[in-house]
């Protein structure tokens, strides 16, 4: 029963969504309630409840590390303080004070705009540094394929910047257009389509296996 019930639920949920996909919109509602968005909002509600699991997990792991004074426990203290500093004022209803809740002018909003957002941007900006070091280290013309990849990458990198356009147009004015036509809209598009079709088929096959209970490895079976 421990695996039978989840498999049945998985099958019914999947089958219901497929069935609704083929049903005319006029017939896919009961008493004015559209079934498809309704089912999808159940997913959101269930997801909301599981957030508690996440909070319990993060607090337990970090609290244990602090209690045992594990290496780097200072960072764990910062994590715990940040969790409660963001969560507590956001949970208190804004009717008590405009500092609470998540609206404009609240503590949550201030922390988000002045701490969270710049930190997110900083992490994303680090990509530029990592791309540079990965390219510097890994882009070697070891084989014919790697050479082709290298040349294409250099051409596309040049094509995407004004300075590169000046260089490429200097060789021949049509080169930027040729890159767009043959590399981006030609080779790139064909490869992307191939990968997308293959991955979509793989995902559909996996979904079918999950729905029919053939694939249960994600449940630990």
């Amino acid at each position: 029963m421990r695996t039978t019930l989840p498999v049945i639920i998985a099958f019914l949920s999947g089958f219901a969504m497929i069935f609704l996909f083929f049903l005319s919109p006029e017939y896919s509602s009961i008493n004015g309630v559209e079934l498809e968005p309704e089912i999808l909002s159940w997913v959101t509600i269930v997801g909301g409840f599981t957030l508690l699991l996440g909070v319990v997990s993060i607090v337990r792991v970090n609290y244990t590390a602090v209690k045992r004074r594990k290496e780097g426990w200072g960072y764990k203290v910062a994590t715990l303080v940040s969790i409660f500093a963001m969560a507590v004022p956001a949970i208190i209803p804004s009717s008590m004070s405009s500092l609470f809740g998540t609206g404009p002018g609240s503590i949550y909003d201030w922390l988000f705009n002045n701490l969270d957002a710049p930190m997110m941007s900083t992490m994303f900006a680090m990509l530029a540094f990592y791309i540079a070091s990965a390219a510097f280290r890994a882009f070697r013309a070891r084989t014919a394929e790697a050479t082709l990849l290298l040349i294409t990458a250099v051409i596309v990198m040049l094509w995407r910047i004004p300075m590169g356009e000046i260089v490429l147009s200097g060789i021949h004015e049509n080169i930027p257009n040729l890159i767009n036509t043959y590399i981006m809209n030609g080779a790139n598009m064909a490869v992307q389509r191939g990968i997308i079709i293959g991955a979509a088929l793989g995902a559909a096959a996996m979904a079918l296996r999950i729905m029919l209970g053939i694939e249960r490895t994600y449940m630990g079976k």
Binding site: T4, F11, L12, A16, F19, Y27, S28
Partner: peptide
């Protein structure tokens, strides 16, 4: 298990479908 699941799904969806028949016919 698969057959049981398919049959159960069909029964439930038929029931849902029967309710859905109450949808306004003019649309």
């Amino acid at each position: 298990l698969t057959i049981t699941a398919i049959v159960t799904a069909l029964v439930i969806l038929t029931a849902v479908f029967a309710f859905a028949q109450d949808a306004p016919a003019e649309t």
